[in-house]
């Protein structure tokens, strides 16, 4: 359904900066009806990759095919028709603030110049499907994050697309809402056979709904395959980090000593060094480090929670401060 061949994307230099090589020689094949996940840290190129699929970005080299059509070769008018068959949902929902829920879902149908009666039936059915019929006349500002994403999903499905692109669709949601949105996406995939391509920095999302996964780093796909085999036997260092991250999150049976808990945040640049220091400390069993999903920041950085005896925690913090020369922002 989606086929990317030899894709490179270089953004021209701006204001004296070097040109950015966002993607380098990427191949990707997503089968019809599949839920395919692309996981990577921020800046890995996954967002650019996703935008190539519906032509919001054009590749510098290579070809993008969706349902047999070569997206990068389409004339503007054809591209618009092709886009109607490629739905997209967003991290920040991107709903029109000036339109009600109902009118938001009607938007893509109006743009496709569908008859009024068709629009009315379709919108009612979609709102029913995402469980928001009773909120039809509300404005987006009156909805919760989860409800907003449901509107986003209904809107993306309005023109019966064959592909649904999910751009960090659950990253702005809390864990419970995330799982309800993922359930909805899985259900839609099962019922309609729509192909899902999603990008995320949360491994739990990939584990929850994806059939296959590709791990991205530095504009390249460094590992790919069935979700179980990739995460069960991670080969690349980035994949290993994602796996470790979830293992820590899952082992929550460690006795909580709330008075000794220490939080710190690190940016994406510091991540590599932080992992290197935290790993051994955790393996020694003296401290427990967890990453709350709520604390995963949009900048790609993370907030860690260190738990353990005071001297052990301090020792770890000291090693982070001095040996790795990190400016970790500690707050209790």
């Amino acid at each position: 359904m989606i086929e990317l061949k030899g894709i490179s994307k270089t953004f021209p230099s701006q204001k004296g900066n070097q040109p950015v090589k966002a993607l380098q020689n990427v191949d990707l094949h997503v089968a019809q009806g599949e839920i395919f996940g692309i996981i990577g840290r921020s800046g890995a190129g996954k967002s650019t990759l996703l935008r190539l699929v519906n032509g919001l970005e054009t590749p510098t080299n290579g070809t993008v095919r969706v349902d047999g059509q070569e997206i990068s070769q389409l004339a503007e008018k054809e591209l618009r028709y092709a886009r109607q068959k490629i739905g997209m949902i967003f991290q920040h929902f991107n709903l029109l603030q000036s339109r009600t829920v109902w009118k938001n879902v009607a938007f893509p149908l109006e743009m496709a110049k569908k008859p009024k009666e068709t629009i009315r039936r379709k919108v009612d059915a979609l709102l029913e499907q995402v469980g928001l019929s009773d909120r039809a006349q509300a404005y987006p500002s009156q909805l919760s994050g989860g409800q907003k994403q449901r509107v986003g999903i209904a809107r993306a499905l309005a023109n019966d697309p064959k592909v649904l692109l999910c751009d960090e669709a659950t990253s702005a949601l809390d864990p419970e809402t995330t799982s309800s949105i993922l359930d909805l996406l899985r259900e839609i995939n099962r019922e309609t056979g729509i192909t899902l391509l999603l990008i995320t920095h949360e491994m739990s999302v990939v584990q929850a709904i994806c059939h296959r996964v590709a791990v991205m780093e530095g504009g390249q796909i460094v590992e790919r395959g069935e979700v179980k085999s990739v995460f069960g036997n991670p080969k690349h260092s980035v994949t290993k980090q994602f796996v470790q991250q979830t293992e820590w999150m899952q082992s929550s049976d460690f006795p909580v000593q709330s008075t000794e808990k220490t939080r710190f945040h690190c940016s994406p640049d510091e991540m590599q060094d932080v992992w290197a220091k935290i790993g051994p400390a955790v393996q020694s069993g003296r401290v427990k480090v967890s990453v709350s999903e709520r604390e995963l920041k949009a900048d790609g950085g993370m907030t860690f929670l260190i738990d353990g005896k005071r001297e052990d925690v301090e020792q770890l913090l000291d090693s982070l401060h001095e040996e790795a020369d990190l400016e970790v922002n500690v707050h209790v």
């Binding site: 919001l56 618009r80 967003f90 603030q97 938007f107 893509p108 743009m111 809107r155 023109n159 692109l165």
Partner: peptide, 15 residues
Amino acid sequence: VDKGVVEAARSMGST
């Protein structure tokens, strides 16, 4: 106006 909303509209095939 939020650029994301414009992007969303473009992604839906708006002129």
